[in-house]
Structure formats: C-alpha cells, structure tokens
Amino acid sequence: MQYLLMIYSAETGWDQMTDAERQQGAAAYQAYTESLTKAGALVGANRLQHSNSATTVRLVDGKPQVLDGPFSDSKEQLAGYYLIDVPNLDAALAWASRCPGAAHGLIEVRPVWTASHDSRHTA
C-alpha cells in the first residue's frame, strides 16, 4: 500500500544552520533516501520550494480565485515528501520515524487513496 510521508518544518530553520549542520542534514536525508531505495519502498520524493513561492487556487461562485502564497500561515510548512509503498501502516510509521525531518518538525503519514478502497468514488 502506498503512503505519503509529508515533512513539515520551519522554513527558516535551514537558513539558520551552519554550513556543517546543513551538510550533516543533507547527508542524513541522502542516507534515508538510500535506505528506502534499498528496501524497495521508495516510489518518489521531492523537496519543495518555500511556501512564499506557492499559489493557491479555489473556486468562489464557480470562478477561480488565485492568491499568491500558501493557504495557511503556520509555524511549520510542507517542506517535502516521500511517497512509499509498504505492506501496512505500521511499516509506514516506522519509516516516518526514521525520517530526518521528524527530528526538527513533524511527519504526516497519509495513505494514498485507491479505487479499491471505495467503489462509490470511481469514475
């Protein structure tokens, strides 16, 4: 089953680190990614640009309303994600707890919706 591990962290944290701390952080993520790959669990992963580069779109009275910036303003922003394929939630939680982002933010673990979960929502 696929799970999305969403990494939330303070965007200014990286900029406040020393060069040595940034190198250590990058090495930790590289090692984590290699572990997921070797386990055959990695489907995809990406780091996201800062939330000030986001654009939010919603429909208001059937017309698109486009706003610069993220939908919400909070201390922690979505910084990146890993899409993994593992047998169950326990395995996904185990991988989430190993993610370097868990040490300086939080990891939201969410199952990916598939048509087999609810036939009422299939096209």
Rank of each mutant, 00 (worst) to 15 (best):
L5R: 00
L5H: 00
L5Y: 00
L5I: 02
M6C: 05
I7G: 00
I7T: 00
I7F: 03
I7L: 12
Y8C: 02
Y8P: 01
Y8V: 04
Y8T: 01
S9L: 08
A10K: 12
T12N: 13
T12G: 10
G13L: 14
G13K: 11
W14E: 03
W14S: 00
D15Y: 08
D15C: 07
D15L: 14
Q16C: 09
Q16P: 02
T18W: 14
A20F: 10
A20Y: 08
A20G: 10
E21R: 12
E21S: 13
E21D: 15
E21Q: 15
R22C: 13
R22I: 07
R22H: 06
R22G: 04
R22A: 08
Q23P: 07
Q23C: 08
Q23V: 09
Q23K: 11
Q24S: 14
G25M: 15
G25R: 15
G25V: 05
A26F: 15
Y29R: 03
Y29E: 02
Y29A: 03
Q30D: 14
Q30N: 14
A31D: 09
A31E: 08
A31C: 05
Y32M: 04
Y32Q: 02
Y32F: 15
E34Y: 03
S35W: 03
L36N: 00
L36A: 02
L36P: 00
T37P: 00
T37I: 06
T37W: 08
K38Y: 04
K38M: 09
A39Q: 08
G40E: 05
A41L: 04
A41H: 10
A41K: 02
L42R: 01
L42G: 01
L42A: 01
V43T: 03
V43Y: 01
G44H: 08
G44K: 06
A45S: 15
A45V: 05
A45W: 06
R47D: 10
L48P: 00
Q49L: 13
Q49A: 13
Q49M: 12
H50S: 08
H50W: 10
H50R: 13
S51A: 13
S51V: 05
N52K: 13
N52F: 12
N52P: 03
N52S: 09
S53N: 11
S53M: 12
A54S: 09
T55I: 15
T55N: 04
T56G: 03
T56E: 05
T56K: 06
T56H: 10
V57A: 10
R58N: 08
R58E: 07
L59S: 05
L59F: 06
L59A: 09
V60M: 05
V60Q: 09
V60S: 10
V60F: 02
V60T: 08
G62H: 01
G62L: 04
K63W: 04
K63I: 06
K63P: 01
K63S: 08
P64I: 04
P64F: 09
Q65N: 12
Q65D: 14
Q65K: 15
Q65V: 11
